Computed example of a mutant assay.
Amino acid sequence: MSETTSRVLQLLGLLQSRRVWTGEELAERLGVTTRSVRRDIDRLRELGYPVAASKGHGGGYQLGAGAALPPLLLDPDEAVAMAVCLRLAAGGSVAGVGESALRALSKLDQVMPNRLRSQVAAVHDATVTLTSTTSEVVAPDVLMTLARACRDREHVTAGYVDRAGNPTRRRLEPYHLVTTGRRWYLLGYDRDRQDWRSLRLDRMTDVTAAGSTFAPREAPDAADYVRRSISTSPYRHVARVRYQAPADAIAAHFPPASAQIEPDGPDACIVTAGADDPERMALYFAVGGVEIEVLEPPEVIAAAKAVAERLCRAVSP
Rank of each mutant, 00 (worst) to 15 (best):
residue 233 S to A: 13
residue 286 A to H: 06
residue 91 G to C: 01
residue 138 V to Y: 06
residue 175 Y to L: 01
residue 294 V to M: 05
residue 220 P to D: 01
residue 216 P to V: 02
residue 280 R to K: 12
residue 174 P to V: 00
residue 186 L to T: 00
residue 249 A to V: 14
residue 54 S to D: 05
residue 178 V to M: 05
residue 251 A to E: 09
residue 14 L to P: 01
residue 198 S to Y: 00
residue 298 P to A: 04
residue 223 A to R: 07
residue 16 Q to Y: 08
residue 28 E to F: 07
residue 15 L to S: 06
residue 200 R to D: 10
residue 216 P to E: 03
residue 260 Q to T: 08
residue 109 D to W: 07
residue 299 E to P: 12
residue 229 S to Q: 10
residue 270 I to D: 02
residue 141 D to C: 09
residue 5 T to S: 15
residue 170 R to W: 01
residue 105 L to E: 11
residue 290 V to R: 02
residue 272 T to V: 07
residue 51 V to H: 02
residue 275 A to K: 05
residue 296 E to V: 05
residue 267 D to W: 06
residue 174 P to G: 00
residue 73 L to Y: 03
residue 109 D to L: 05
residue 46 E to S: 12
residue 245 A to S: 02
residue 259 A to L: 06
residue 265 G to L: 14
residue 97 V to R: 07
residue 96 G to C: 10
residue 173 E to G: 03
residue 124 H to G: 06
residue 275 A to Y: 09
residue 299 E to M: 05
residue 70 P to E: 11
residue 286 A to S: 15
residue 77 D to S: 08
residue 279 E to V: 10
residue 245 A to C: 07
residue 119 Q to S: 15
residue 304 A to H: 12
residue 272 T to E: 07
residue 95 A to P: 07
residue 17 S to W: 06
residue 154 E to N: 04
residue 14 L to R: 05
residue 168 T to R: 15
residue 150 C to F: 06
residue 79 A to E: 11
residue 136 E to W: 12
residue 19 R to N: 09
residue 129 T to S: 06
residue 248 D to S: 10
residue 317 P to C: 01
residue 183 R to M: 07
residue 287 V to I: 13
